[in-house]
């Protein structure tokens, strides 16, 4: 019977756990509105992973893990363009460019990044095709899932907490009014600086995330840190930086508005 469903009902962590415990062999296809991925398992261990449906070349994977300088990646790709991943891996080892451990580490890091990207999905279809094998030319890595499942489980809890703190990404940020605090004196990491550079009442948090290339989980974590540090405040999108007057009072001028509020006060006093 096919193992398929929606991540809304059965989280990616639960799917991975099931594959791990049941020592399944086959391919797991994930398809959501924002990303798709293909993961292949052999007896419960991850042996192949790719986002989208196209395989990522080994040189690119090594460059992403900084095992090959990105400046050298293009020339190596060109030089070895006729070799498949398995042949290329052997060539890189024989030429002393990388060790076998480095190649396995680079591939494992790449797989973990793909899985981490899937942990934030709360909706999307999954389908497990039993017995599907990885391409015969791929490097035969077998990655145990326990550690990544624990990490994902922690991240899912953290994401849930962050969603409680920042329920909507359709609000904007403004700098908190804290006289005497110079933001340049505060130590921020690269992600936080990137977000800070887009803080503006006209930009929603969602737009900032897109511009800063952060997913929902990452942007919530950064914004949460900035809120905790008291550097920014959430405001309604496009609202002026200065606190706006209460616009809800159905009177046109301040005297009328005061009069109206005073009438309500007088009435409440009589309750």
């Amino acid at each position: 019977m096919a193992l398929k469903g929606n991540l809304r009902d059965f989280s990616i962590i639960q799917v991975l756990n099931l594959i791990n415990l049941a020592k399944k062999t086959g391919a797991l296809y994930i398809e959501s509105s924002s990303k798709s991925a293909k993961l292949i398992f052999r007896e419960g261990k991850l042996v192949y992973a790719t986002t989208g449906m196209d395989a990522v070349p080994l040189i690119k994977i090594m460059a992403r893990s900084k095992l090959i300088p990105s400046s050298a990646a293009a020339s190596l790709s060109e030089r070895y363009r006729t070799l498949n991943d398995m042949e290329l891996g052997i060539t890189l080892i024989n030429s002393g460019y990388l060790t076998q451990d480095q190649i396995f580490t680079g591939i494992a890091d790449f797989f973990k990044d793909i899985l981490r990207g899937l942990f934030t999905l709360t909706e999307g279809l999954f389908n497990f095709e039993a017995d599907e094998q990885p391409p015969s030319t791929s490097i035969p890595l077998r990655m145990a899932l326990e550690d990544i499942i624990i990490e994902g489980s922690r991240q899912a809890h953290e994401h849930e907490d962050l969603k409680n703190e920042i329920p909507s990404l359709d609000v904007a940020l403004k700098f908190a009014e804290r006289p005497g605090v110079n933001i340049r004196d505060i130590k921020l990491n690269a992600e936080e600086w990137r977000v800070i550079s887009y803080v503006n009442p006209k930009n929603s948090i969602k737009q900032i995330a897109t511009a800063a290339k952060l997913n929902d989980f990452q942007i919530r974590r950064v914004v949460y840190n900035l809120l905790q540090a008291g550097l920014v405040e959430m405001i309604r999108l496009n609202s002026p930086v200065a606190s706006a007057p209460p616009h809800a009072i159905p009177a046109r001028n301040p005297i009328e508005q005061r009069n109206l509020v005073n009438r309500v006060i007088d009435r409440i006093k009589t309750i």
Binding site: E165, I166, V171, M234, R236, S243, P246, H247, A248
Partner: peptide, 18 residues
């Protein structure tokens, strides 16, 4: 309390009223 804080922030974002 954490949820209350989240609700407060959300409402402040929706409407800058007292």
């Amino acid at each position: 309390f954490r949820e209350a804080r989240g609700i407060l922030e959300t409402f402040r974002a929706y409407a800058p009223t007292p």
